[in-house]
């Protein structure tokens, strides 16, 4: 099992040192992903989902410390020396960002930015890297790609920029693609196009994808598995089917009931009362307990452990068993 995994993350923790005290934006994330598998990390803003991706690439500012293991093709990314780390970033492990306008350098053309990456990783000539960049733009279905190659980011539309960003991320055939809310900044019609493109490319190239979103619909559309994140911890993981049909954690249920997808037609959408806790002032027990209808004394005082329900299926809740009983 471990040898098959494309990514194997163990106990990944990202601590931010602040004057007010340390805070763990990601607290012991553990998961593994097979080749060609798509996993979505689902959660509200501030739950630590984007930080998880950045931590996996070792990309956090120096006042953050990252511990744990991120094994890609058997090597622990976090323990690589700087040169090998740079080689792995954009090589086997690649990333798409939420805001392509902010993530692309505004004073270089799209072609230059893609070619630069290819030259850096493969050491081929600039001219042939530019040829590859052209092929990549055509691959992500950018019309008149040859002209777009010479465009600066501000000369493109949002959807086009995100396509260019995807082309850039795929430039060196990564085995693992990290996608940080790649559709959030786009129009709904463009969103679906980008999702379909990503799904198509993922299947064609056999990549493993970790997709971060707060949108349940997007998660259902693209992923094989879902990890629900709350206050820096995975509170439930499982297959899309299981989580969409029988969510076990009260937070997952709340999340589903608060979307049109999960709610029933004609019924009022439910909301989760309250708001996510501040990461620097987490409750002593279960982080979700202040907002949870089922919370009892135990929930308020003790942090629940992971209950393993099956391979890749865990839940972090004292009431999960009763929830399961209800479901059956």
């Amino acid at each position: 099992m471990a040898t098959e995994a494309a990514v194997d993350v163990r106990n990944l923790t990202a601590m931010f040192r602040r004057r007010e005290g340390d805070m763990a934006a990601v607290n012991g994330a553990t998961f593994s992903l097979a080749r060609g598998e798509v996993m979505t990390i689902l959660g509200e803003s501030g739950s630590g989902k984007s930080v998880t991706l950045k931590a996996m690439m070792g990309l956090l500012p120096d006042y953050a410390s990252i511990t744990g293991e991120v094994r890609v093709a058997g090597r622990d990314i976090l323990k690589l020396p700087p040169a090998a780390l740079a080689k792995a970033r954009g090589g086997e492990l690649s990333m798409i960002f939420q805001e392509p306008m902010a993530a692309l350098d505004p004073v270089y053309t799209i072609g230059e930015q893609i070619a630069e990456t290819i030259v850096k990783h493969e050491g081929i000539t600039y001219a042939s890297a530019m040829q590859r960049a052209l092929a990549l733009l055509e691959r992500v279905a950018i019309p008149s790609a040859a002209r777009r190659l010479k465009n600066y980011p501000h000369e493109m539309s949002g959807g086009m920029r995100q396509r260019a960003m995807i082309a850039l991320a795929l430039a060196c055939n990564p085995t693992v693609l990290l996608a940080d809310e790649p559709t959030t900044a786009l129009d709904v019609t463009v969103q679906i196009q980008i999702l379909l493109l990503l799904r198509e490319l993922q299947q064609e190239l056999g990549m493993s994808v970790i997709f971060v979103t707060h949108d349940v619909g997007v998660a259902a559309e693209i992923s094989d598995r879902i990890a629900v994140m709350y206050a820096g911890r995975f509170v439930e993981t499982g297959t899309v089917r299981e989580i969409m049909r029988h969510p076990k954690h009260p937070y997952s249920k709340g999340l589903l009931n608060s979307t049109v997808l999960g709610g029933l037609r004609g019924r009022r959408l439910e909301t989760i009362p309250g708001s996510p806790p501040s990461l620097s002032a987490l409750p002593r027990g279960c982080a979700f307990s202040p907002r949870c209808a089922q919370a009892d004394v135990r929930c308020l005082t003790t942090q629940p452990d992971e209950t393993v329900l099956g391979p890749g299926t865990i839940v972090r809740c004292f009431h999960a068993n009763t929830a399961m009983a209800e479901a059956i």
Binding site: A83, A86, A88, G90, G91, F97, L104, T117, K120
Partner: peptide, 25 residues
């Protein structure tokens, strides 16, 4: 403080090429 220097590191650039990008900006 903007996002793109991090994105440059994410695509595998090292300190000096990133410095070049920052200088041009």
């Amino acid at each position: 403080g903007r996002e793109f220097p991090g994105a440059l590191a994410a695509k595998g650039l090292t300190r000096w090429p990133i410095l070049r990008h920052v200088c041009k900006n």
